[in-house]
Amino acid sequence: MLTAAKNQIKVTLLTTKYAVMREMLNKATFLSNVIFMILNNSTFLIQWFLLLSIKESIGGYDIHKILYLWGLASLSYGVAHFFFKGAFHIGEIINEGKLDSYMVQPKNILISVSTASCSPSAMGDIIYGFVLFFVNDPSVVNFLLYTLFGITGGLIVTSVAIILNSLSFWFARTDSIADAGMNLMTTFATYPGTIFKGATKIILYTIVPLGATAYIPIDILTNFDWKYTLIVLGVTVLFVFLAFFIFYRGLKRYASSNLMSARI
């Protein structure tokens, strides 16, 4: 069991390494993508400086919390798209019948598909996430917590992408639903949860797990609480489990298109 897990991790790391190497073939393009993504994310700080010049705090979020919010959103998004970009294209792969080449491999299919490609610009998101952290709060304990929440956030975002993309096993052309779902997560993740009320707030803490990717981690970073940390970890495990469960339930319905393809 332990050896199998060790082997899976080894293969996953190798797949990620080769995906990164493929993207780095053209170093100038890779670097420009990273740098431009950092600049791209930085423009949003202007928005918050303007808003905070009108009101000192927005729903209890001052500049300190806003930097955490943006940093965590970037870091989670970056982790998800850099290490698991393939997860965001599972629907497309299913629709085109391209899962066959992953199914013949002796390792976990979902992990193989998810780690098969990488987004170079997502490295810009990761770097930006850490830059915001160091500008905001360079303490060691919070650094460890922040990194942990970046990883849990990335895993939750990836799990949601897998769940939404797996709908393609049951229904045709569900890519617009998956896009809309991911859009919803990204849009709401960059605004304080406290500005939303009623049903929206309930949805953001339940169906759309932004409470666990952003809002609760920010509360933990500003006022540490073990119970909330365990809740974030629990929600992460739950979403990862759900992603595997739904993907493998759907996989039983998968019909090959006999498409000849090679993974290079």
Partner: peptide, 24 residues
């Protein structure tokens, strides 16, 4: 029909900003 999915994204953007300005 494709517009329906995109309208959802447009609605989200507007919804977030309406909430934000309501708060401001």
């Amino acid at each position: 029909f494709n517009f329906i999915g995109k309208m959802f994204s447009l609605f989200l953007m507007i919804f977030v900003f309406m909430n934000l300005w309501n708060f401001m």
